[in-house]
């Protein structure tokens, strides 16, 4: 089979598969609209179990899309998550790709 060049590839062919998973997409969406959030708040927002959430957040952290910082409230430690610049740019690019594909579809 001949290799297709970049112009022949469907716009979704190079979709960011790290973001393109229901759970991680939810996590990235909520992180996109807030400054920062901890695991507990994120479990309430997404409805994911903490173990499931921790797995997905770790994958996003490995890719450099999120960063996790320790903070203290009333001397209790909390892990706070926020999007990195790379994560924010990747999410914007993903959002634009999806919008372009659906905008091109006929009604």
């Amino acid at each position: 089979m001949a290799k297709k060049n970049a112009e022949e590839l469907h716009p979704l062919a190079d979709l960011d598969r790290l973001i393109h998973s229901p759970a991680r997409l939810m996590v990235m969406t909520y992180l996109y609209v807030v400054e920062s959030v901890d695991y507990v708040y994120l479990t309430h927002l997404t409805g994911l179990t903490w173990g499931n959430l921790a797995t997905h957040v770790n994958k996003l952290e490995e890719a450099g899309y999120v960063q996790i910082e320790k903070t203290f409230v009333d001397k209790k430690p909390y892990s706070v998550i926020n999007l990195t610049k790379k994560g924010r740019q990747s999410f914007k690019a993903y959002k634009q790709q999806m919008q372009d594909v659906f905008d091109d579809l006929p009604d």
Partner: peptide, 19 residues
């Protein structure tokens, strides 16, 4: 909020810039 809500609901920071 710090004593009763944060331990149950968690922490969130919502900035004016993004919202």
């Amino acid at each position: 909020k710090r004593k009763f809500v944060v331990p149950r609901m968690g922490l969130v920071k919502i900035s004016l810039r993004k919202n």
